[in-house]
Design a protein around this nucleic acid. Structure first.
Lengths: 183, 183
DNA sequence: GTCTATACGCTGATAGAC
DNA sequence: GTCTATCAGCGTATAGAC
């Protein structure tokens, strides 16, 4: 696979545009123009716009690294990751996936990747009752924060003291991680 | 305003279709067909598809009632509301709004209604430090649960014991509501 | 094999005749 | 007020040039 192949150029342009303009806001023609090729080539290489989008979704290694860290400080770590995620592409990708989530295949991919990188590994590491349910609820909190901070971009959150957000929301997540319930 | 006016027929059909098929999945022509009129009439009455969508977003009285209830049991009340929201239209509307949230005006409406019916009233009712920030974070948890349960429809959540979800996630919300932090 | 040109059936939206 | 005709743009498929 040559590094400068048109296939990579298309995927690179698509990654950028999807993250910036969302799924519906990005046209196949715009991707082709940014990649310097014909629109038909985009479809020819990836089959469909939806398949191209799914090919741009990366495997977040940084998130996996955090989830593999110490459980007792995971809540605040996760919040810190979300608030500082501008450099990585996690926010844009998640935003694009949510914006396209009426498509069944994209919704399924969203669910599957959430389960594979988040719920599954986390459920294995926390004790107590209902580990998988609790891991999934932590993922719900996590997605809720990304949603509020990056997608809705609520000013209350954006202007708030960052360390206060980390402490407050981090501890609320931590409550679901700690297994202090009686059996 | 006559009760059986075509304007109401259009809005009624649009409300149903948007909730069922999402924003992008609902066409103006399908709305017109369901309302028994011409597609051009839909645009002529509401200006645009986006304006029609915004006109279908209701003011949730049930949620406002819960938020006005006792704060000490609000966490579990909110979770119970989300899990049982199939009868009301809250889930479908939220789902449709999220699916259309790359449109700036719809995103802004999502933020504004979240603030007006949720964050604002709640911030006035909870004590302690950072009341507005904490109320906004509760809203983030709330949206995260709707997202996971109704939009992603994660099987882990859908098959989980309902009362366990209410207790676990409700208590995680409650942690943000209670103001037991030192000043 | 890789790419371009062209076209098809859809979309949301507009202008103007009844 | 309501419908007809029509627009430009969309994702996509295919035929055929290099």
């Amino acid at each position: 696979m040559p590094p400068n192949s048109p296939r990579d150029a298309i995927r690179g342009a698509a990654t950028e545009l999807f993250a910036r303009d969302g799924y519906a806001g990005t046209t196949v023609r715009a991707i082709a123009a940014a990649a310097g090729c014909d629109p038909a080539l985009v479809i020819r290489h990836f089959g469909s716009k939806e398949a191209l989008f799914l090919a741009t979704v990366p495997a977040s290694t940084e998130l996996a690294r955090i989830l593999a860290g110490p459980v007792e400080s995971l809540g605040r770590e996760l919040v810190g990751f979300v608030l500082g995620a501008s450099e990585s592409r996690v926010a844009g990708v998640y935003r694009a996936m949510l914006s396209a989530s009426d498509r069944p295949e994209i919704k399924e991919r969203l669910r599957a990747s959430m389960h594979d990188v988040f719920v599954g590994p986390l459920a294995d590491r926390i004790g107590g009752a209902y580990p998988e349910l609790r891991a999934r609820l932590v993922a719900a909190q996590f997605a809720g924060l990304i949603n509020a901070y990056w997608l809705v971009a609520d000013p209350v959150l954006r202007n708030a003291d960052r360390s206060a957000t980390v402490e407050l929301y981090g501890d609320a997540i931590q409550r679901l991680l700690d297994s202090d319930d009686p059996p």
